[in-house]
């Protein structure tokens, strides 16, 4: 792969019915990366969890809109002990401003339903960065997995 390569740009309506299609697109995009099934499954799960959070919390019940998923391969710097990184950038256009607190994992010793999505994202990915969109409403979540 070249130094920086866009593997996927996919815009879709933020709703639960789209998640199967999203996962399929993501698997197809990740196939040339030559990673094990376990690594691919974990990355697909983490990105899917991030989309679920956008659907449930950023858009919620009262707002509607799209999600744009961009997947990019970035080569590692010379002398660095990783081959490169996969960057998953999720952009939403929701009125709700997602804050860093909402992306924190909850303690796993609390056995209760819910709140596991952020733990999965933080566990699978090496970097999780949240920022506002530069223009207009919405949020950008960038997930990085070093390989």
């Amino acid at each position: 792969m070249t130094a920086a390569q866009k593997l996927l740009v996919f815009q879709f309506p933020a709703c639960a019915e789209q998640m199967g299609c999203l996962r399929q697109k993501l698997r197809e995009a990740l196939a040339p990366c030559g990673q094990s099934d376990t690594v691919v499954n974990n990355m697909v799960l983490a990105v899917s969890e991030a989309c679920t959070n956008i659907i449930q919390h950023a858009y919620g019940q009262s707002d509607k809109g799209d999600i744009v998923l961009e997947v990019e391969w970035q080569n590692g710097k010379p002398g660095c002990n990783v081959t490169g990184s996969l960057v998953f950038r999720l952009t939403d256009f929701a009125r709700h401003k997602t804050c860093a607190e909402e992306m924190r994992s909850r303690p796993l010793d609390e056995i209760r339903p819910g709140g596991l999505g952020c733990h999965i994202i933080n566990e699978v990915m090496d970097e999780v960065v949240l920022r506002d969109r530069e223009s207009g409403k919405g949020n950008v979540l960038e997930l990085r997995k070093r390989l």
């Binding site: 799960l45 899917s48 969890e49 679920t52 056995i111 209760r112 339903p113 819910g114 596991l116 999505g117 999965i120």
Partner: peptide, 10 residues
Amino acid sequence: DSSGIASLVE
């Protein structure tokens, strides 16, 4: 996913 796991936990 975590929503399915949440159903199992409940």
